[in-house]
Amino acid sequence: MEASILSIVMPCLNGMPHIRDAIESVTSAIPAGNVELIVADGGSTDGTLEFLRNAPVTLIEGPDRSLYEGLNKAIASARGEYLVWLNSDDLLIAGMAELWRKTQESRADIGTGEAEIAVDGKPNWKSDHHAREMSIASLLFAVPTVNSRIIRTGLLREAGPFRCDIGLGADRDMMLKLFRLSRKRIFLNSDVYRYNSHSGSRTMGATWKSYQDVHDANLQMVRVLRGEMTGNGDRELIDAFELVSTIARARAEFFNGAPMASLGGVLKAFRDHPSPRTWSRGKSLYLDNRGHGSGW
């Protein structure tokens, strides 16, 4: 790995038309940096592959089973000491260059900046990582924004590959591993990343179906965490998170036109977690973290 290189990894499948802006945002945000952009394409059929073959990127062609398999391929090819994950429909923004400089100078394991979510090009949410210290609870209940972080490549490889069997829950699962392994973390109070909400996004689609998918992934992640986190305090957190995710999934099902399935989800929550203590803690953690960044 080379200390002077920042590796930017991008899993991609049918990324048009957003991928053009995503790639251009790299040179706009880090105009003077020694940057490599590695794109793992899983078998695009919308013209993305033809575009990428002539773009200033290192291209890894699929097929792969999921975006996380593509992400793992890109990470395995990274040459830089530090790494950033850029979605093919999002943007790096100006603060990323300063975050990279600060992270290198401090020899930190993780450097965190602020992220924003934009709808139709207009920001409507901004993280507040500066306001809290990262913890297991914050990574579970708040918004993790893994993309607004520069991560030491060696630490990421030590944590192991992103899981490919728990859907979108792989983001939180990896952040929990990195949190436990990291020794030094730094923060820059600048915007470094923009998530774009649009109808085709799996995580930022702003539909009840996309919300249901996210909570499905959270519940898949819970099953994994029960084997990875064994302390009593960890188990209590996981129970509270599972309860909140089950209720949130049921709510999404209701508004997605499946009221009976939604009722079944609520009954399952009562059956699996009858303790008032779990409900009280789940409600408290949900209210404390809802809409907030997970910290640094």
Rank of each mutant, 00 (worst) to 15 (best):
G233A: 15
G233I: 07
G233M: 11
G233S: 12
D234H: 14
D234Y: 06
D234A: 13
D234C: 13
D234S: 14
R235Y: 05
R235K: 15
R235P: 08
R235G: 09
E236D: 13
E236Q: 13
E236G: 13
E236V: 12
L237G: 03
L237K: 05
L237Q: 03
L237I: 10
I238Q: 09
I238R: 11
I238N: 08
I238S: 10
D239S: 15
D239M: 11
D239R: 10
D239V: 10
D239Y: 02
A240F: 03
A240Q: 00
A240T: 05
A240V: 07
F241M: 05
F241C: 08
F241Y: 14
F241R: 06
F241T: 08
E242H: 11
E242G: 14
E242F: 08
E242R: 07
E242C: 11
E242K: 09
E242P: 08
L243G: 08
L243I: 12
L243D: 05
L243F: 10
L243R: 02
L243E: 02
L243A: 13
V244W: 02
V244A: 13
V244G: 01
V244P: 01
V244C: 01
S245D: 04
S245K: 07
S245Y: 02
S245A: 14
S245C: 11
S245E: 04
S245W: 04
T246K: 01
T246E: 05
T246I: 14
T246H: 02
I247S: 00
I247D: 00
I247Q: 00
I247T: 05
I247C: 10
A248E: 02
A248S: 15
A248L: 13
A248K: 15
A248Q: 08
A248M: 10
A248I: 03
R249G: 02
R249M: 09
R249H: 12
A250H: 07
A250Y: 03
A250M: 11
A250D: 02
A250K: 05
A250C: 09
R251L: 08
R251F: 10
R251E: 06
R251S: 12
R251W: 07
R251M: 11
A252T: 04
A252V: 05
A252I: 03
A252L: 04
E253V: 08
E253D: 13
E253S: 14
E253M: 15
E253I: 06
E253W: 05
E253A: 15
F254Q: 03
F254L: 15
F254R: 06
F254T: 07
F255V: 10
F255Y: 14
F255R: 04
N256P: 00
N256M: 06
N256H: 12
N256K: 03
N256F: 10
N256R: 08
G257N: 02
A258R: 11
A258L: 06
A258P: 00
P259H: 12
P259K: 10
P259T: 08
P259I: 13
P259V: 13
M260N: 09
A261C: 01
A261W: 00
A261I: 04
S262L: 05
S262C: 14
S262Y: 04
S262I: 03
L263R: 10
L263P: 00
L263D: 00
L263N: 06
L263A: 15
L263S: 11
L263E: 09
L263F: 12
